Simulated scan of single mutants.
Amino acid sequence: MNKPLSHDECNCFALRQAARFVTQIYERHLSQVGLTAAQYTIMAKLSRKPQLTMVDLAESMVMERTTLVRALKPLQRDGLIVSEASEHDGRTYLFSLSDAGRHLFEQAAAAWREAQDEFEAKFGKARAKSLRSELFSITA
C-alpha cells in the first residue's frame, strides 16, 4: 500500500494555497472600486472580446457556467454588463460591457496594476512572468 502524500507534496494544495494568497492581494486592491478578482477577470475578458456567449466566456475562463452566472449576476444587476439575444438564435445571449462597465473597468485597471505591481515586488518580475507562462500552459 502506498503511503499517503503529506500536504507539502500535494500539487493541488500548493496551487490552491498560492491562489488564495494571490487572490487576497488582488481583492484588496480591487475592493477599492467595488469588484472582486473574479468580476475583474470577466470584465477584462469582455473588454478584449465583447459579445461572447455564456459558453464561450465560461470556456475561455475555464469556469463552470454556474460559477460564472453567480459572478455575472451582480455585474448585470449593477448595469456593468449587458446581454442581448443573438441574431442567429434568440435563446443564446451575447455579453458585453456597458458604457458604465467600460468606465468602471478603466478605474479597476489602475487598481489591478497596483495589485500586479505588489505581487511582482514580492515575487520578482521575471519569476512572475515565468510562473504565468507555466500556469497558462496547464490550461492551454
Rank of each mutant, 00 (worst) to 15 (best):
L15W: 02
L15S: 09
L15E: 05
R16E: 06
R16I: 04
R16S: 08
R16Y: 05
R16D: 01
Q17Y: 06
Q17S: 11
Q17W: 01
A18W: 01
A19N: 11
F21P: 02
F21K: 12
V22F: 06
V22Q: 01
V22E: 01
V22A: 05
T23N: 08
T23K: 00
T23E: 11
Q24Y: 03
Q24S: 13
Q24R: 00
Q24M: 07
Q24E: 15
I25M: 08
I25D: 04
I25A: 05
I25K: 07
Y26C: 12
Y26L: 03
Y26G: 01
E27G: 00
E27Y: 03
E27S: 01
E27N: 00
R28C: 12
R28N: 15
R28Q: 15
H29M: 08
S31A: 10
S31K: 08
S31E: 03
Q32T: 13
Q32Y: 01
Q32I: 09
Q32P: 02
V33T: 14
V33H: 11
G34Q: 09
G34A: 12
G34H: 09
G34W: 08
L35Q: 13
L35G: 09
T36L: 08
T36A: 11
T36F: 04
A37H: 08
A37K: 00
A37S: 12
A38K: 08
A38R: 07
A38D: 15
A38S: 11
Q39C: 10
Y40C: 06
Y40T: 04
Y40E: 03
T41N: 10
T41E: 11
I42W: 02
M43Q: 07
M43K: 06
M43S: 06
A44W: 01
K45T: 11
K45F: 02
K45I: 03
K45S: 11
K45R: 02
K45Q: 10
K45N: 05
L46M: 05
S47T: 14
S47I: 08
S47P: 01
R48T: 07
R48Y: 09
R48P: 02
R48W: 06
K49R: 09
K49T: 15
K49W: 04
K49F: 11
P50V: 13
P50C: 07
Q51R: 10
Q51F: 12
Q51N: 15
Q51Y: 05
L52D: 07
